[in-house]
Design a protein around this nucleic acid. Structure first.
Length: 270
DNA sequence: AGAAAGCCTCGGCCGC
DNA sequence: TGCGGCCGAGGCTTTC
């Protein structure tokens, strides 16, 4: 599903990284005003707490951990989670052009909050489905290592299972406390590339299967980063009911794994 | 009108 | 058998 020639996406790690690059443009600016609706401020004590906390803060830098965008300031660190349909806007510029599951265009009624700077610019969160959240001094200890820079050593810790067979590898990939940034589409793409059944218990992966998954993890991040979005994976052409695998023509299977709709090839991921 | 997403909460049960 | 922690299910929210 695309919107004509417009790229359509889900805010997974690659999209949030492009939001971070957009946010880099406000480094050095000072916030004069901030606002948020009740949903965006849901993790804070109130929308007023956001307005009060951000006033007069100067942005000193940007960072990102997984899907969490971080704005560093001369005071607390500001965090933004984008949920399913959140897009970061800087005045007229969007961090990305469209969303896979989101609307085809931007509407002012879907602006849920943001900040205004001393130079007049505005950094805004556009979020039709209201799952984006602001945070103040977010707790990073609950997030695993960043998926865009995952080393082999970190990967080996990521697939380690303490007890029993462990969760399905698909569920482990989505576990943000194990590795931060992999969303549903990226997880399916990695497993497709690694020729792994998403239901495989993490603790039962062979050495060869772990090697394949690590390679697929890295290649998915780098090639989809170059292509420009989480929705541009090799398996996406086959990602519909009744779809056939673009690699070998096998029938695609659909099931809920790790709480998310999962597509995989019955032939090469069997 | 059903399904989709990220994230959070809750409850059940696994494993020691 | 008891307990803590893990894991999966379900809810939130809105749109197409």
């Amino acid at each position: 599903m695309t919107f004509g020639d417009t790229l359509a996406r889900v805010p997974e790690i690659l999209e949030v990284e492009s939001y971070r690059q957009l946010a880099d443009r406000v480094v050095g600016a000072t916030i004069v005003r901030g606002w948020a609706d009740g949903y965006l401020a849901k993790k804070l004590t109130s929308p007023a707490a956001w307005a009060r906390s951000v006033k007069n803060l100067t942005i000193t830098g940007t960072d990102r951990r997984g899907k969490l965008l971080l704005l560093e300031t001369n005071g607390p660190t500001l965090g933004v989670r984008f949920g399913m349909t959140g897009v970061l806007l800087l005045d007229g510029d969007a961090g990305i052009e469209g969303l896979f599951y989101g609307p085809h265009d931007f509407q002012s009624k879907w602006l849920r909050g943001g900040v205004e700077f001393d130079d007049g610019r505005k950094l805004l969160v556009h979020d039709p489905r209201r799952m984006a959240r602001f945070e103040i001094d977010p707790d990073l200890s609950e997030l695993g290592p960043d998926a865009l820079r995952l080393t082999r050593k970190q990967f080996d810790r990521f697939v380690r299972v303490e007890r029993g067979d462990g969760p399905a590898i698909k569920a482990r990939l989505l576990d943000q406390s194990r590795v931060a940034g992999v969303g549903n589409l990226l997880a399916d793409e990695m497993l497709f590339r690694a020729s792994l059944d998403p239901r495989t218990p993490t603790g039962l992966l062979s050495g060869d299967e772990k090697d394949r998954l690590f390679k697929a993890f890295r290649s998915t991040m780098s090639s989809l980063g170059k292509r420009g979005g989480s929705h541009l994976g090799d398996h996406m052409d086959s990602r519909f009911p009744g779809g056939l695998c673009s690699r070998d023509g096998g029938a695609m299977v659909i099931a809920t794994i790790g709480g998310r709709t999962t597509y995989w090839c019955s032939t090469h991921q069997g």
